[in-house]
Design a protein around this nucleic acid. Structure first.
Lengths: 266, 266
DNA sequence: CCCCTTATTCCGTATTACGGAAATTAATAC
DNA sequence: GTATTAATTTCCGTAATACGGAATAAGGGG
C-alpha cells in the first residue's frame, strides 16, 4: 500500500522528515484569518489528504488543544494552544520592541502606516504595525499576511533575499498561478532595479488599488532572517512623490539604524 | 522495541491519536513567552523525549517554517508559521471585537486593566487586554498566560467550568505541584463560594503581591467554551473595596450582556 | 591534545500511521 | 415514513514509517 499519493512529485528533500507531523501542521495551516470554522471535508480538500487521515489528525489536534470542536456544526476552529503559540513567538522577538518607537516616529511624521514584516512561505507576515494618530487604518494587525509578489514589502524581500531562497519562492509562486507570472516577473525585475538605485521598492496601487507603499529590508542579526520595513497609505494621504521624497530617506535611515542591532553588545 | 517510555502510565485515552503529531506539538509547546532560543538538548529535557527523536522533529518543524534555526548557537526559535497561526486564531474570534468597546469603557471607569481570557491547558490565556488611559500597565498582552489556580481569572473559570473539566484540571495541577495543593484547594473552595454569593471570584494579592483583581465568567455561545472577564490593578489604584463595590456590578453587567451574544441573531 | 557537551546520522525493528471501504449519523427531499 | 444525499468516524489488514540506542561528528574549553 503506497502511503505517498500517486501523482505527487517527490522532491527528494525529505531525508528525515516526520510525515505525520508535517500533515498535522498542514491541517493547522488550513485555517486562515477571516474564514470561519472548517469541517473535515473542507480540510481534506484544502490539504488534499484522505478523509480518514484528516479525521485522525483533527481528533489528535483537538485532544491537544490546538483545535476546538464545535459540536452543533461539526466543524473545527483554532484552539487556545494556537493562540498561545503565536503569543510566545511574538513575545520572543526583541526586535519588535526595539523598532516600535522609531517606527511610531516615522508613522507620525509621514501620517502613514509603518510596518515590520518577515517572509512566511509565500507571503509576507506583519510582525508589528504602527499607525499615525490620524486614524485612517488599513485593517492590518501583527500576524496577518500580505502578498509577496505585489506588495512593496514582499518586493523588498525578493530584492534582497538570498538567491536560493528567492528562486525557490519565485518558482513556487509561478506554479501556484502561472497566469499571473508575467506581472510578477515584471514587478520583481522592477523591484531589484529600484532596490539598487533608490534603496527601496515600491508598490503604487499594484497590491491594492489606491494604496501606495515603499519598503526596504535590513538584517537585524541575532540569527533572525531578513526583515522588511514599509511605509504605506492610501494615495490621498501619501502621494508617490511624498513617499519617494520625504518618507524614503527616513525609512532608509531607520532600516540602517536597525541593521545588526541584535548583534551589537548591549 | 517498546516505543512508549517505560514508566509511563498509559491512560487508555488514546484510541486514535497520532503520536508523532502530538510529540511535534509538544516540541512547539516548549517555547514559552520570555525564554530565548532553545537547543535540542533543552527541548529533549522539557518534553522527556529521546534526543534523536527531538532532532528529527525539530528538523521537520524547521523545514515547514514553524521553527527557525540559529546556526551560530545551534538553537531554535519559533518561526513565522507560528506567528501566522496565532494571528489566524485571534482573527477568527469575533467575540474579541464585540467585547472590546465595552471592556474599554469599564477600564476607563475603573482605571484598571480589563481582560478577556479562556483556559488553555493549565493556564488562563489572555485574548484581549484593555487598559485605562492612565498608563500603569501590567505587562500583559493577548496571547500571554496567567495562573489558573491563583489568579481571579483562573478561579472564575474553575468555579464555573463543567465538573469533568474542572476535576481534570485540578487533578493535573495537583500532580504538577503537590506542595502547593493546600493553597490551591483553599483558593478554589473560596472561589466557588464567592461565585455563588457575589457572582465574582477574587484574587487580592494572591497571584502577585500588591495586585488585586476580580473576575467572572460567561458563555459567549457560537460553540466557544466558557470565557472569563477580569478587572485588575495594583492595590494603590484599586482597593479591594472599590473593586467589590464599584467594579463588581459593572463587570457583572458586562458579562451578562455578553452571555450568548454569538448565538443571537444578527 | 584531550575531554566534555551537544547535535546528527545510522540502521534494524515492529509499532504506528495509513487509507479504502463499511458503518454511522444527520439532514433534506419525496 | 422512507429514500436519498452528504459528511464523519470506525474498522482493519498492510507495510511503510517513526522509533530510539548506539555510533559518529562537530565544537569549545581547559
Amino acid at each position: 500500500m503506497a502511503r505517498r499519493r500517486a501523482g505527487e512529485a517527490l522532491p527528494a528533500e525529505a531525508a528525515d522528515t516526520v510525515t505525520a507531523l508535517t500533515r498535522g501542521l498542514d491541517v493547522l495551516g488550513c485555517f486562515r484569518r477571516g474564514d470561519g470554522p472548517l469541517g473535515n471535508q473542507e480540510i481534506a480538500a484544502r490539504t488534499r489528504l484522505p478523509r480518514s487521515t484528516v479525521s485522525r489528525l483533527t481528533a489528535t489536534l483537538t485532544r491537544a488543544g490546538w483545535l476546538l470542536h464545535v459540536p452543533e456544526t461539526q466543524r473545527y476552529r483554532l484552539g487556545p494552544a494556537a493562540i498561545a503559540l503565536g503569543g510566545a513567538a511574538l513575545g520572543g522577538l526583541d526586535i519588535r520592541g526595539i523598532a516600535r518607537a522609531p517606527m511610531q516616529d516615522l508613522a507620525n511624521r509621514t501620517r502613514a502606516v509603518v510596518a515590520l514584516g518577515m517572509r512566511d512561505r509565500l507571503s509576507m507576515l506583519y510582525l508589528e504595525v504602527v499607525r499615525s494618530d490620524a486614524p485612517i487604518s488599513l485593517n492590518l494587525e501583527a500576524g496577518s499576511r500580505i502578498s509577496l509578489a505585489f506588495s512593496a514589502m514582499g518586493r523588498a524581500w525578493l530584492a534582497a533575499a538570498p538567491p536560493a531562497e528567492r528562486e525557490d519562492a519565485l518558482l513556487r509562486l509561478r506554479e501556484l498561478d502561472d497566469g499571473a507570472w508575467p506581472r510578477i516577473a515584471a514587478g520583481v525585475a522592477r523591484a531589484r532595479e529600484d532596490a539598487a538605485v533608490l534603496g527601496i521598492c515600491c508598490s503604487f496601487g499594484e497590491w491594492q488599488d489606491g494604496v501606495n507603499a515603499i519598503a526596504t529590508s535590513f538584517r537585524p542579526g541575532g540569527g533572525l532572517p531578513l526583515m522588511v520595513l514599509n511605509v504605506g497609505a492610501p494615495a490621498f494621504v501619501c502621494s508617490t512623490e511624498s513617499l519617494l521624497d520625504e518618507a524614503r530617506p527616513a525609512l532608509l535611515a531607520l532600516a540602517r539604524s536597525l541593521d545588526g542591532v541584535l548583534d551589537r553588545p548591549g
